[in-house]
Computed example of a mutant assay.
Amino acid sequence: MFAASLALVLAGWNNLVIPALPGTTTVYVGVNLAATALLLAAARAVGLSWAELGLDRRRWAAGARWGGAAAGVVATGYAVALAVPSLRPLLEDERLAGLPGGALAVQVLVRIPLGTVVWEEVAFRGVLLAALARVLPLPAAAGLAAAVFGVWHVRPTLGALAANDLAGDGAARVLAVLLACLGTAAAGLVFTWLRLRSGSLLAPVLLHLATNCLGALAAAAARRAG
């Protein structure tokens, strides 16, 4: 019951709850951090252990090794894309275009790490995965958690398409959203593999941070490089 309810809540959270709130960074980060704390408390109340949640301190070193290695691969990829002029347009994101340095720093140091990465990793690779693994075989639990992670990205994908003037109306937009959600579901499986391989939530957190934060910096750099 807990696992099914959580899957439904998470499927709607990013698509229904967040859009209804004021769009400021303070609200976004505050609400998601509060949700993180409440979710961890609920997980512990239903008997999920710190180890099941990926938060066993004895696994932090392994998480740092695996996550650091994965983050290094992502950083190298961004560096190569920035170094090759023909690849730079792939990094650009109009949502970050023209942001002054201070606003970009808030995105990279506050909004993304605290409002997005911590919340998503605790919710999906921590609590939801652990709850599902109590009632399903692990491969099925991992697949379902990844599917919900894909659904979580419907609204953000629509926002990105609109901001970057991509995939107009109708079937093209539906296809673009479907492909983006499948892509994020696949990314969720990678994050889950890291979580299970290392035994620590720190591993997917580090990869997620590198993907999103370095991606924002790379987009800004690509824009300025022309």
Rank of each mutant, 00 (worst) to 15 (best):
N15T: 08
N15P: 08
L16N: 06
L16R: 06
V17M: 00
V17L: 15
P22H: 07
P22G: 04
T24A: 11
T24L: 09
T25H: 03
T25D: 13
V27C: 07
V27M: 03
Y28M: 14
Y28E: 12
G30A: 15
G30Y: 12
V31I: 14
L33D: 00
A34K: 12
A34Q: 10
A34L: 15
A35N: 12
A37K: 06
A41S: 07
A42Y: 10
A42C: 04
R44M: 12
G47W: 11
G47Y: 09
G47R: 11
L48H: 13
W50D: 14
A51F: 02
E52N: 01
L55R: 02
L55I: 01
L55H: 01
R59C: 07
R59Y: 02
W60T: 11
G63K: 01
G63P: 02
R65I: 12
R65F: 09
R65P: 00
R65H: 07
W66L: 15
W66P: 03
G68A: 07
G68L: 10
G68F: 06
A70G: 07
A71P: 13
G72F: 07
V73Y: 06
V74F: 11
A75M: 02
A75Y: 00
G77F: 11
Y78A: 09
V80R: 01
V80A: 11
A81V: 14
A81D: 12
A83G: 15
S86R: 14
S86P: 00
L87R: 01
L90Q: 10
L91Q: 02
D93R: 09
D93P: 05
R95S: 12
L96Y: 12
G98S: 12
G98T: 05
L99A: 14
P100N: 04
P100G: 02
G101L: 04
G101N: 03
G101I: 07
G101S: 05
G102I: 04
A103C: 09
L104R: 13
V106C: 01
V108W: 03
L109R: 01
V110M: 06
R111L: 13
R111K: 13
I112Q: 02
P113Q: 02
P113D: 03
L114I: 04
L114N: 00
G115R: 05
G115E: 03
G115V: 11
E120V: 06
E121I: 07
F124C: 08
G126A: 12
L129Q: 14
L132S: 06
V135G: 02
L136W: 15
L138E: 15
P139Y: 10
A141C: 07
A142C: 12
L144P: 10
L144H: 12
